[in-house]
């Protein structure tokens, strides 16, 4: 499997990563090398082996349902670029 230049621009756009026209070919080359590595791994016969969802063979840790987190709004908002009436302010978004 390999990616076209259009695929690379689309993925960059979806990831909100600015890839300039100059960088596009190099990025394509790097991504394709990763995909090539995946192709090699895919070639291994894994019949009968259960796919892993996580690199470590561990289970999800669970906690009891209790509201324990204190209100730390003032501390959190102290490092936010813009706040008003307790809200974080962001550039206007209307779909």
């Amino acid at each position: 499997m390999s990616l076209s230049l259009e695929d690379v621009s689309r993925i960059a756009r979806l990831s909100r990563i600015a890839v300039t026209a100059d960088e596009l070919a190099a990025t394509q080359n790097q991504l394709n090398r990763i995909l090539h590595l995946i192709d090699e791994m895919r070639a291994v016969d894994t019949t009968g082996i259960e796919p892993m969802a996580h690199a470590q063979d561990v289970f999800l840790r669970l906690r009891d349902d209790a509201a324990t987190a204190p209100d730390r709004r003032a501390a959190f908002q102290a490092v936010a670029p813009a706040v008003e009436n307790g809200l974080y302010l962001v550039p206007k978004v209307i779909e």
Binding site: R63, D65, A66, A67, T68, A69, D71, R72, R73, F76, Q77, N85, G86, L87, Y88
Partner: peptide, 28 residues
């Protein structure tokens, strides 16, 4: 539930904005 799915912040409705958030919820 009393608390959020991945953090210990309260899920009660109607609190003042951003007073029920933990580090996970604001993605620190």
């Amino acid at each position: 539930t009393q608390s959020k799915i991945f953090s210990g912040a309260s899920t009660a409705f109607g609190a003042a904005p951003n007073t029920q958030t933990a580090v996970v919820d604001i993605a620190l």
